[in-house]
């Protein structure tokens, strides 16, 4: 066998490898910058035709009219509204699951339930959207006497279901990491289990819980297939939770195929992607900041 120039055991080999790994390790950074660059390159040209304020606050989204109108306010409001509604459902539900798993469930039961909750996270969003379309929509239409079951509340329910594993699992980790000594101190003062959970354990794990909520909400804002399939798709400002809506993500997915390459419509959709990217980036930065603060050191 030929002797290699750099034997794999040499220090030089190790040093070279360390550099190579460093360069490859930077790939995430490079990719993130590339994504930003592309969104900006393909999105900013829209502002040659439409002012930034008109784009953000315009209330009419008619990209195919002549002249086309590119006001994304209804889409932004739709995204915020459906996210808020989904959060109102998902956050209490997830926290209940988290506390149940961390404090109440028998260890053997927890061993079974926790993976099942995590399975929810693995179900493809298109399947959840499909279920919303074929089962939840007809159900809502029938029982609430509305024109269409494809609307905001349907989307919010499906999104809430998808957010539960994220919020519950991260919150559960945070709650479980509260030192036993804190809880024992509370019991010693005569507090019962619920009082201890409510006044000691949950407040002590609040930064982790906030991280969980923010990550969950950020996933909801960015979720595409569910809102594309069940939100109804009407680009109007919703007045009730039974109105069909068209969130930002659904709008991109629905229109990209028909937008002419490097036309105004195409640029406008990339500009919407910039908005989405910025929102989720801010959410992630906040989550990162929170999770690095107030962390319990191993005792």
């Amino acid at each position: 066998m030929k002797k290699p120039v750099f034997p794999t055991g040499s220090i030089l080999y190790d040093a070279i490898l360390s550099r190579v790994f460093f360069v490859i390790g930077l790939s995430c950074l490079v990719l993130l910058l590339l994504i930003m660059l592309f969104l900006i390159l393909e999105g900013l040209p829209i502002f040659r035709t439409v002012g930034v304020a008109d784009f953000l606050f315009g209330t009419s989204w008619y990209p195919t009219y002549s002249p086309p109108q590119f006001g994304v306010a209804p889409l932004i409001i739709a995204s915020l509204a459906v996210t808020l509604l989904a959060s109102v459902i998902a956050v209490p539900l997830s926290l209940a699951v988290a506390v149940y798993l961390a404090e109440l469930a028998h260890p053997a039961v927890k061993e079974i339930i926790k993976p099942i909750v995590e399975i929810i996270a693995s179900i493809p969003s298109v399947v959840i959207g499909f279920f919303g379309m074929v089962v939840v929509a007809p159900f809502l239409q029938e029982h609430f006497d509305i024109d269409t079951g494809l609307n905001m509340i349907n989307a919010a329910l499906m999104l809430a279901f998808m957010a539960v594993p994220t919020i519950a699992s991260i919150s559960e980790d945070a709650i479980s990491s509260v030192p036993t000594s804190l809880k024992e101190a509370s019991y010693a003062l005569g507090a019962n289990r619920w009082q201890t959970i409510f006044h000691i354990t949950v407040p002590a794990s609040l930064s982790g819980i906030w991280t969980a909520i923010i990550l969950g909400v950020s996933r909801v804002i960015g979720e595409t297939m569910v809102v594309l399939m069940v939100a109804g798709g009407a680009g109007i400002i919703p007045k009730s939770i039974f109105d069909p809506i068209r969130p930002l993500t659904a709008n991109i997915a629905a229109e990209m195929a028909e937008a002419a390459f490097h036309g105004d419509h195409y640029y406008a959709l990339f500009a919407i992607a910039i908005i989405l990217f910025a929102i989720t980036m801010v959410f992630n930065l906040i989550a990162d900041y929170l999770s690095n603060r107030y962390k319990f050191k191993e005792l």
Partner: peptide
């Protein structure tokens, strides 16, 4: 910094990845 970028990359909405893939 790298870990922060990984978290940010994980948070990018999937449809934005689609647009990026289309563009690049």
């Amino acid at each position: 910094i790298i870990r922060l970028e990984i978290n940010n990359l994980a948070g990018v909405p999937s449809v934005v990845f689609g647009l990026f893939g289309l563009g690049l």
